[in-house]
Design a protein around this nucleic acid. Structure first.
Lengths: 267, 267
DNA sequence: CGGTTAGTTGAGAAAGCTCAACAGATGTGG
DNA sequence: CCACATCTGTTGAGCTTTCTCAACTAACCG
């Protein structure tokens, strides 16, 4: 996890054996026995503390109960493993429960571009809806868990619930807007500005989840950051050093402390 | 228009007076009187030759009739004018009928990034769904016409028709995928490769509409192309010259002839 | 027809890349 | 628990690509 104070399976998860093999990593969740620990993620949407991030705020209790019947399973993905790969058949959307992912698109010549980093509460797999196969791949940056949202069931739920319907539109349109502003970054910004806006974006997302926006752990390498920002890892490293020298950020390897967010925004 | 052989209001449109002032450019279409000319765009979806590009292929006749009751109006946008601007309230999706558009996102400091060029049959406005206001703006590259798809009505139509519902998902997800591959381009390609893939993409889209993929008119300036590709206009111009010298493309100003598409794909 | 805009080309500057050396962190097996 | 290997990150030097600025030409418009 990025922040220290998160309660579910923290760094013990990496060493604990995955309940299912890498081939069949679907783990059914017992919906009756599992009771959410205080302040923790539940295995059901109805009691999950991330629901506010992941689902619309104004669901009725009936809708929430119905949601529990759609989102029945979770899946663990070990660090470095893929949740899905390009050309995999699209069957489900996913929501990050714990851990984090990168999504990448691959050019035929092997070049890859990281198109996003996903942290808890964020959706994965929306790219698969249009063609029935995924166009990008999602790789876990650390041992992670996702909720599985089978698309067929979710769709029929959406036909019943206008709010859910809207939420699905919302998710897809948000992804469109997110990617637009990323294109703006790639097309018009200097290396310095790209890294600054990356850090501020991450900070805002952590803050929205109740974590510190001023201090967090990057789970991705300098190379992955570069791949996301359209830069080489050396350039990313240099920019971190520059921010450090100028008193904007205190990077200790992957541990980042944002010292002067205003200045970072002005870069 | 890009291709010469398109029948509806060709280059006469620019000089013909807009039926409504620039402020209130909504033009009601009389659904009964207007009959589609042979091979031409109709003012109704049921008889529109672009429907195959714009809507799902397998609509029932009932659905098509219902579509006619949703898409009632078109709007003319003069060259350089905006169909919508950032922060405008989102009310409708649009489909380009004639002409072409660019969509741009603006940074607060005035920098702008072109995030797409839209030609007939392509959707506009999907960015507005998530927040209720548009995040980008759509500017006509030439005198153009769009079909107006009021989102509220379209949504309720989608609740009745699973095919339309799917199509809306399809449109949004396609936009996500399109933007991903654009990010790949901006993040990993050289100037030469960017221009090559831009030309090949345009060619494919024209071909899909029955126009020549080997020869077409660019309605956008070198500067706008640069803004899309994350390059300066001089660089775009130099790359055109290089392609010309190498016998890949014959550019005569805005008139482009692709001589060696294979080589272009190999760049 | 003259003024304006769009496109081309050249020369020099700058940002970011490549290659290389090195330092720290991490992990592994003895 | 240490030694070694590996991986990740930092820094420097020189190079490449693209940008900037400028001059010039072509196309377009009133």
């Amino acid at each position: 996890m990025y922040a220290e104070s998160v309660c579910e399976a923290p760094s013990s998860a990496p060493s604990s054996p995955s309940p299912a093999g890498p081939g069949a990593a679907l783990i059914p969740v017992n919906r009756q026995r599992h009771v959410s620990e205080p302040g923790c993620l539940s295995t059901r949407c109805s009691t999950c503390s991330l629901r506010a991030v992941c689902m619309p705020a104004d669901l009725s209790s009936i809708e929430i109960r119905q949601l529990d019947t759609v989102v029945l399973t979770t899946r663990h993905v070990r660090r470095g493993e893929a949740l899905f790969r390009a050309h995999d058949v699209f069957q489900s959307l996913y929501a990050v429960r714990t851990g984090s992912f990168k999504t990448i698109v691959m050019h035929r010549d092997g070049r890859e571009q990281v198109i996003g980093f996903q942290i808890p509460g964020e959706p994965l797999g929306l790219d698969g809806v249009c063609s029935g196969t995924h166009s990008c791949e999602a790789i876990a940056l650390e041992d992670s868990t996702v909720c599985i949202i089978p698309f067929a069931q979710f769709e029929s739920f959406c036909r019943d619930s206008r709010r859910m319907q809207h939420h699905l539109y919302y998710l897809m349109s948000s992804e469109i807007v997110r990617e637009s502003s990323l294109m703006m970054m790639l097309g018009t910004m200097t290396a310095e500005q790209r890294l600054a806006s990356f850090l501020l974006d991450l900070a805002a997302r952590f803050r929205a989840r109740g974590y510190s926006g001023a201090q967090f752990n990057l789970k991705m390498s300098r190379e992955e950051i570069g791949c996301y920002l359209g830069l080489k890892l050396e350039t990313v490293s240099r920019m971190f050093s520059r921010f450090h020298r100028d008193g904007l950020v205190e990077p200790k390897g992957k541990q980042i402390r944002i010292v002067d967010a205003q200045a970072l925004a002005r870069v």
